[in-house]
């Protein structure tokens, strides 16, 4: 299976074991430009590990991860991020002692403006860039409904607000690939709508989006493409509506044992 022009993320033959426990077994997954794909499956199936491997936090035992044809294996996490991969963590990992606005600004600032001497020597230019970034950040915070919280410390917010901050930070920079780990948890219905709007907007702009989700209703609101990961393998990929009709999908999702795996139509 080669990568096409439209494919942003290509995962081939990915395997990872932790001691005796085989977490991921020969996983194959792809995501195209502008495609939103949901990765579903019971807890402990290895979904977050998959994200960890793609974003460079863990090494796979075997297999390859390609971003627009370029291998990500062996790159440092910040190098992968610089290539246009953005991630929402399941446990958020906010910068708790920074304000909401600063959390977003960090994601928006390119490395040229982060030289220690930059502020001292090219003060005016950096200041101009900063003003530009602030406007952009406040605009984004407005989109997620956090404008009033902009100057509060991220650590002091409610869990829903923290989730929105994390989302804003993830969507701040222009990324080619978005890895969202449970974007809808902790969000009330209004916030959920804002989150799904952000996701749809990013995909419309050409970003490939992969979400890990348990809430199938939320999944249904943003996309029809799902991949089911259970017992370390992608068991089925396909359309949500089609799969909902098959009991294999529901059984697997509810966690009962699967003795045979039937690769479905991609």
């Amino acid at each position: 299976m080669g990568s096409t022009d439209h494919e942003v993320l290509t995962i081939r033959g990915l395997s990872k074991s932790f001691g005796d426990h085989r977490l991921l077994v020969n996983v194959e997954l792809a995501c195209d430009k502008g495609e939103i794909k949901a990765l579903v499956g019971p807890n402990g199936a290895g979904k977050t590990t998959l994200f960890d491997i793609v974003s460079g936090l863990t090494l796979a035992d075997k297999g390859d991860v390609l971003l627009e044809g370029r291998t990500l294996v062996g790159l440092q996490p910040h190098e992968i991020a610089a290539l246009g991969v953005a991630r929402l963590f399941q446990d958020l990992r906010l910068f708790e002692n920074l304000t909401v606005l600063e959390n977003v600004l960090v994601a928006l600032t390119p490395s040229e403006d982060e030289e220690p001497m930059a502020g001292l020597l090219c003060g005016a230019r950096v200041a101009a860039h900063e003003r530009c970034r602030r406007t952009k950040a406040l605009d984004l915070l407005g989109h997620v409904g956090l404008l009033e919280q902009a100057h509060r410390f991220a650590g002091e917010l409610s869990s829903g607000q923290q989730k929105l901050t994390a989302l804003a930070r993830t969507f701040a920079s222009d990324s080619g690939l978005l890895l969202l780990d449970e974007p809808s948890t902790s969000l009330d219905s209004d916030m959920t709508e804002r989150a799904s709007a952000l996701i749809r907007r990013a995909a419309a702009a050409g970003t490939a989006v992969i979400l890990i989700e348990h809430d199938l209703t939320f999944v249904g609101r943003v996309t029809d493409r799902v991949a089911l990961l259970n017992l370390g393998s992608i068991l089925i990929q396909g359309s949500l509506t089609e799969l909902n009709r098959g009991s294999l999908f529901l059984d697997s999702f509810l966690g009962s044992q699967i003795t045979d795996s039937a690769p479905g139509a991609s």
Binding site: F18, L23, T49, L57
Partner: peptide
Amino acid sequence: VGTLPSLG
């Protein structure tokens, strides 16, 4: 720090 962390 910065070496790939083990799971768990």
